[in-house]
Simulated assay, not measured.
Amino acid sequence: MSDSPAPLAPGSLAGKTALVTGSSRGIGADTARYLAQAGADVVINYRNKAPRAEKLATELRALGVRVLVVGADLTDPASVSAMFEEVAREFGALDILVLNASGGMESGMAEDYALQLNRDAQIRVLETAQPLLHDGSRVVFVTSHQAHFIRTAPTMPEYEPVALSKRAGEDALRERIPSLTAQGIDFVVVSGDMIEGTITATLLERANPGAISERRGAAGKLYNVSEFAAEVAQAAIDPVPADNTRLVGDISSFSA
């Protein structure tokens, strides 16, 4: 994480509880940091690497907030149910749910793993969380321009299956907006370009050397992890934008 100032005012989320999926590292970890710095109690979710999640929890507890660490495989219904049962016991309700965890470029996974994680698991997490959400809660879904605009702007072949699965997840979540609105729950999609320093960027560069520098040249700037996480955290409190979509950075390459 960089030394840039926290994006949210200290105390602005005091008394709130936030769960960030995939928050033991990367964008998820920095988002959890920003929310905790603003006073929110935080649920750190991880799939593996418990020591890394616990290290972050120790850091955040030093800020004076409550932190719950819960390991869960989001593609496993029983694991997701167990996670929210623990959240319910600890906090009783959720004010902010950040759907950050995604993937699909990992090796050794099932052929449909990207769709399982980026669509099916996102819906599962939202539906399982919904009883804990309430009037005034907010759901934030994190995606990429390469996925958000995939139907009108082709992406690099190595990323296309992931992009298509993330767009499928976004579409499925958007179908829930009417039911969320009926509960008084806000929904926001945060879309950004390739993010410097993420696992996805590293895997893409490995599969297609020069891909990130080429994208950086086309965009003029690529956000780093902490910069983009600041946008995700801000999306948890800012007014809901038009079309429930917060576009981060230049989109000229995608909307032309």
Rank of each mutant, 00 (worst) to 15 (best):
S2Q: 14
P5H: 06
A6W: 05
P7V: 08
A9V: 13
P10L: 01
L13S: 08
A14H: 11
A14P: 07
G15M: 11
G15L: 04
K16Y: 07
T21Y: 00
T21N: 06
S23F: 03
R25C: 06
A29T: 01
T31I: 08
T31G: 03
A32C: 10
A32L: 11
A36T: 06
Q37D: 08
A38C: 11
G39K: 05
V42T: 13
N45I: 02
Y46R: 02
N48R: 15
K49N: 15
A50E: 13
P51C: 07
P51Y: 11
P51M: 01
R52W: 05
A53C: 06
E54G: 09
K55F: 04
K55Y: 05
A57C: 02
E59P: 08
E59V: 04
A62W: 01
V65M: 01
R66F: 10
L68M: 13
V70F: 03
A72W: 12
L74V: 04
D76N: 13
D76F: 14
D76E: 14
P77N: 07
P77F: 09
S81M: 07
F84Q: 04
E85T: 14
E85D: 15
A88Q: 13
R89M: 05
A93G: 11
I96E: 00
V98C: 07
G103D: 04
S107Y: 13
G108N: 10
G108F: 06
M109V: 11
D112V: 09
L115P: 03
L115S: 09
Q116K: 15
Q116H: 10
A121M: 11
Q122R: 11
R124Q: 15
T128R: 12
A129C: 12
L132M: 11
D135A: 14
D135K: 12
D135S: 15
G136R: 13
S137P: 10
S137K: 10
V140N: 01
F141H: 02
V142F: 01
T143N: 02
I150R: 11
T152K: 14
P157L: 14
V162P: 06
A163D: 00
L164E: 13
S165G: 09
S165V: 07
G169L: 07
D171I: 08
A172E: 13
L173E: 09
R174P: 00
E175V: 07
I177N: 00
I177M: 14
P178T: 05
S179N: 03
L180W: 08
T181P: 06
Q183L: 12
Q183P: 00
Q183D: 13
G184M: 11
D186W: 01
F187Q: 01
F187W: 04
I195K: 00
I195E: 03
G197N: 08
T198M: 07
L203P: 00
L204F: 08
E205D: 12
R206E: 12
A207D: 08
A211V: 15
I212Q: 04
E214Y: 06
E214K: 14
R216G: 10
A219F: 12
G220I: 09
G220Q: 07
K221V: 04
E227F: 05
E227W: 00
A229D: 05
A229P: 03
A236W: 00
A236Q: 03
D238S: 11
D238A: 15
D238Q: 12
P239K: 00
V240A: 05
D243A: 14
T245K: 12
L247T: 00
G249V: 01
